[in-house]
Amino acid sequence: MTDESIKKAEHTVSAFGEDLQKLTDMIVRMGGLAEAQLASALQALARRDSELAGRVITSDQRIDEMEQEVHAFVVRLIALRQPVADDLRNCVSALKIAADIERIGDYAANVAKRAMVLNQLAPVRHIAAMPSMGRIVQELINDILDSYVERDVRKAIDVWQRDEEVDELHTSLFRELVTYMMEDPRNITAATHLMFIAKNIERIGDHATNVAETIHFLVQGTPLRGRRPKGNDQDYSLTTRQPAGEGTE
């Protein structure tokens, strides 16, 4: 038997193969929903659309339910099929990825919640880094789900490395918001919410890198080694920092 034919070979017990395929489909659906949740949350933020934000908040429950479904399905698979090797890694990875996607869903809902609060406040100045950060994170989620479906480690590593851009944008956004707050204290409430929103989006990127690491383990059977590049090592210091000793009382 050739290398290729083994790779493509189906399980002798076809129901087992179908179960594993179903598991992959469950994760992909869950990921797709989380992706849509994030898109809607960002849209609600940009368009000051409280109704859309409200829908995002209620839909998050569905992602939580899906995570429970994945858990139950994996436990059943392990009990009934006793998977080993790549099948076992498949099951364990599904559990981990489902947990990451569930967190991504939570963060999207958090963005929506804060967007609703922001809509009650006066509009703040356009924050340049926010849409680009949202767009990159959406791409990361989209790519990591593709990489999961295709079992494409290279694509996963690419996502893992690209998260650096998100970290960098987050840092610059942080500085920008602090500047606004210093300029006019009336901005503090809105800017603080925006800061949390940015943090939530940045965390979503981190979960995408977690999924990348899981995909590496799933395909190669080994952990993804090395230190992930991080933008400026998250240097939150401000350029306008005052010299020591000249602080206010």
Binding site: D3, A9, H11, T12, F16, V84, A85
Partner: peptide, 19 residues
């Protein structure tokens, strides 16, 4: 062998894909 077999044949056999 049971978590990360090196050879495709081993993997195919222990996961019940042929044999």
């Amino acid at each position: 062998i049971f978590t990360n077999p090196q050879h495709r044949l081993t993997q195919g056999y222990i996961t019940g894909r042929f044999g």
